[in-house]
Nucleic acid binder design. Structure first.
Lengths: 169, 169
DNA sequence: CGGTTTATGTCAGCCTTGTTGACTTTCCAA
DNA sequence: TTGGAAAGTCAACAAGGCTGACATAAACCG
């Protein structure tokens, strides 16, 4: 094992690209994603909501006034699927749906105070885990983490992520 | 807010722990996981299998001869849920279930040649994406990636991951 | 030996969250 | 004025989670 960055030829070792290393990354993604969703899931169970509601709430919070179509393209589900979730959130008074000013066909989605409160509770929990992981790994690791994740996305999703990433920072 | 580890005197900045940075990491996980599962999902659609079958096949390949109970604890689902998946895999001749030698209550699971072929197809696709991401990000980033993911896991899952990580390397 | 526990499998029923297909209403824009 | 876009809805279905109840075989223990 081992072999440094500067083997006989001067280039970087490609050992990090072995099937073995890749497999570890794949399994790490699997187990880490479980942790990633665990805290919000715990909060939501018991309420009538699930992970799908969490995702909707997250992105509405993230882009207040976003349209249904916009949300659809971010979440990557069908409108029937999203509508089922949105309907309950609107009925329960967590989300408000406002008719568009310029284009009255559009609905602009915003969190109510009640919705914002749940969003805060969920994202506090998720951020707490993330913060602990970031702190344990350190800033250099975090940078690498984000680089690899970004490279792993489908190009279309990467564009959406980058658009999102820039707004609000 | 802000303020480095050592003030002006040379510690690391804690800017990477801002809510903004954490939110980017959260969204990166969300979008990256979609990419992570996209290729195997594409292969499996049309066959009668889904992501649950993929996971079972992956870990049986990973630990040939593993028992049902062992697989249950790795996958974190109920035995009824796993059994539905295993039954079809066994019926279709992708997985073989062998009565234990010492403990005849146990069933040891192994992939048949047919099962191994599907495993190869799935993991080739998943590794190809991972390899491209690793290559694009570079070895230092990969190390950071794995560090953060590991820190994000629940302690119990982290132990399972680490056990798995060591075997077979 | 007999009782208890463990490992596995199975039936039935439920929930969430995804899908497709068909159809409506409203409204913008050419 | 007409075609198409945005949104919403109904119905039906599938995957993959879950619980609860129960059955069998084997191991283990007193």
């Amino acid at each position: 094992m081992a072999e440094g960055t500067g083997g006989p030829g001067g280039g970087e070792s490609l050992l990090f690209l072995t099937d073995e290393q890749l497999r570890k990354g794949i399994e790490a993604m699997f187990f880490a994603y479980r942790g990633f969703t665990a805290d919000p899931d715990r909060i939501l169970e018991g309420m009538d909501y699930g992970r799908a509601h969490h995702r909707a709430i997250h992105f509405i919070h993230r882009s207040p006034g976003t349209t249904v179509n916009n949300l659809l393209s971010i979440l990557g589900v069908t409108k029937q699927s999203l509508n089922r979730v949105l309907r309950t959130l609107i009925e329960d008074g967590l989300v408000e749906s406002r008719v568009g000013r310029q284009d009255k066909r559009e609905r602009h989605l915003v969190l109510t105070e009640k919705g914002a409160a749940l969003e805060r509770e969920l994202s506090d929990a998720q951020r707490a885990r993330m913060r602990a992981a970031y702190r344990a790994a350190g800033p250099a690791a975090v940078q690498g983490f984000r680089q690899v994740l970004e490279a792993m996305m489908d190009p279309q999703l990467r564009r959406q992520y980058q658009t999102l990433k820039e707004t609000g920072s």
